[in-house]
Write a protein that binds this DNA or RNA. Structure first.
Lengths: 178, 178
DNA sequence: CCGGGCTATTCATTGTGTGAATAGATGCGG
DNA sequence: CCGCATCTATTCACACAATGAATAGCCCGG
């Protein structure tokens, strides 16, 4: 799920230039990190080199030049393939909470690991309150509500993991320090 | 949660050289992506430039030179601060599923978005079966079981989100294509 | 004594991400 | 009508992240 694929998807609506792509992205995905200009043009160049997009015209309307890009046939195929397939499972489970617990045990000991988990638990509960609030605000758009739903579901998953981890810090300490 | 912090944490056990750090990492975090050598040495150089680690000796035992690094006081402070604080909430919600649903609606239409979500649902269920199996295998170590717990919790969170999204594809289509 | 495998590091390259700089055009206040 | 902010559009310089291959010393077996 790279910016490159997202930009291919946005280009499927019709040819666009970099600046428009940035705005379309930020408007379409208000909960996501805004695309930086540097990335837009760098990605367009990579996509062109790969033959997935091509410049079609250079316009000059009400300001500086704009280079308009369109999908190539290869780009349309690539996009269709990507949209068709479920996100490939990452072969590695990256669990930042577990990493930090492990390092806390190594650097500071079992007690501190307990403390860390409880503090992280409280921080998550705070964040969940925030998201629940934005969900119920009438001004929220459907994409924003869905983003909040997603964040809440994953914070809850973290909470459940934290609870099981809290019960096993002792065993984990033994296994790590052996 | 960067590799830099993880390496600081591993160095808290005592001075080490790059090669050892790589092996300690891969051993301590078997479920994580293995550290590439290129990253180890590049990160050590960045950390040295920031004054968080320093080379203490250059040994030559049974092979090529090895440069041994240790935490500086600043490094110990940085590590303690990082371990002390809960992971800072990212201001942006990155939801790859929502991105793909949105782009599918744009590029292919509402029906295809439905299909995508159902296919993603099935793929998640498959993965959950895999993790459940590795959880119950007697050969699994505690870190591996905890990694599987984490993955299962988050796959389940995705499933719940997919179900609410399935009910709202229609409304989402109206909002997006307007 | 030589080559395959282990230890340890370096290098080249590509991709990702940020922030600032540049530059033309419009609009608006004085 | 001059100057200056603001919007549009792109480029640049830089740091960080990640991969894969290359290098090089040493040990051990045949």
């Amino acid at each position: 799920m790279s910016n490159a694929h997202v930009m291919l998807g946005l280009l499927s609506r019709g040819q666009q230039h970099g600046y428009d792509l940035k705005r379309a992205h930020d408007e379409q995905f208000p909960a996501a990190r805004p695309l930086a200009y540097g990335q837009v043009y760098a990605t367009l160049q990579r996509l062109e080199k790969q033959g997935l997009v091509e410049p079609v015209t250079v316009e000059r309307v009400d300001g500086p030049d704009r280079t308009v890009y369109a999908l190539t046939d290869a780009g349309r195929t690539e996009l269709a393939d990507w949209l068709d397939s479920p996100e490939p499972p990452s072969p590695y489970v990256s669990n930042p909470l577990a990493v930090k617990v492990t390092l806390t045990i190594l650097a500071a000991g079992e007690q501190e690991a307990h403390t860390y988990l409880r503090r992280q638990r409280a921080a998550h509960l705070d964040r969940m309150r925030d998201y629940t609030r934005t969900k119920t605000e009438p001004s929220s758009s459907l994409p924003q509500v869905l983003a909040a739903d997603y964040a809440l579901a994953h914070l809850d998953a973290d909470l459940r993991w934290i609870d099981t981890a809290l019960q096993r810090v002792g065993a984990l300490t033994k296994e790590i320090t052996s």
